[in-house]
């Protein structure tokens, strides 16, 4: 194993995520610290990008909030990312969905992938 891979393995630890990719609809539960209090907030949207490897990997979630597109980048192994829930698997043809930024309304919808066998994590 390469040295970088070894360090990544040590740093990333035992964090489990559902298998998702660009086009999927996910809910990210992340920690927010307000003063001394800590609470969980969720961000629901479509994954438009996954990037990086090992400890530096991150993904971008895009949602339309009050008619305005909002994107957030979440590092996979940040201690503030509590959990990721996979809501829907999308049918898309590319790995980076930046074209979504130019779209709104009906054309911004992502078709849901219907599996022959229901294997998608609910």
């Amino acid at each position: 194993m390469s040295a970088v891979a070894y360090v990544h393995e040590q740093l990333t630890g035992k964090k489990e995520f559902p298998r998702f990719k660009a086009g999927d609809n996910v809910t990210v539960n992340y920690k927010i610290i307000e003063g001394s209090k800590e609470r969980i907030q969720s961000f629901k949207g479509d994954v438009i990008k996954k990037q990086g490897t090992g400890a530096t990997a991150s993904f971008t979630v895009r949602k339309i909030s009050d008619g305005i597109g909002v994107e957030r980048v979440f590092p996979f192994y940040s201690p503030n990312v509590e959990s990721v829930v996979l809501n829907k698997t999308g049918h898309v043809r590319r790995a980076k969905l930046f074209y979504q930024r130019k779209r709104s309304g009906k054309s911004a919808r992502i078709r849901e992938k219907r599996m022959a066998v229901a294997t998608a994590a609910k």
């Binding site: 040295a3 970088v4 990544h8 940040s78 201690p79």
Partner: peptide, 14 residues
């Protein structure tokens, strides 16, 4: 020198 990576502290700072 082997390479670069990033590390999080407990508060989430990368």
């Amino acid at each position: 020198k082997i390479g670069m990576t990033s590390i999080f502290d407990p508060t989430g700072k990368q």
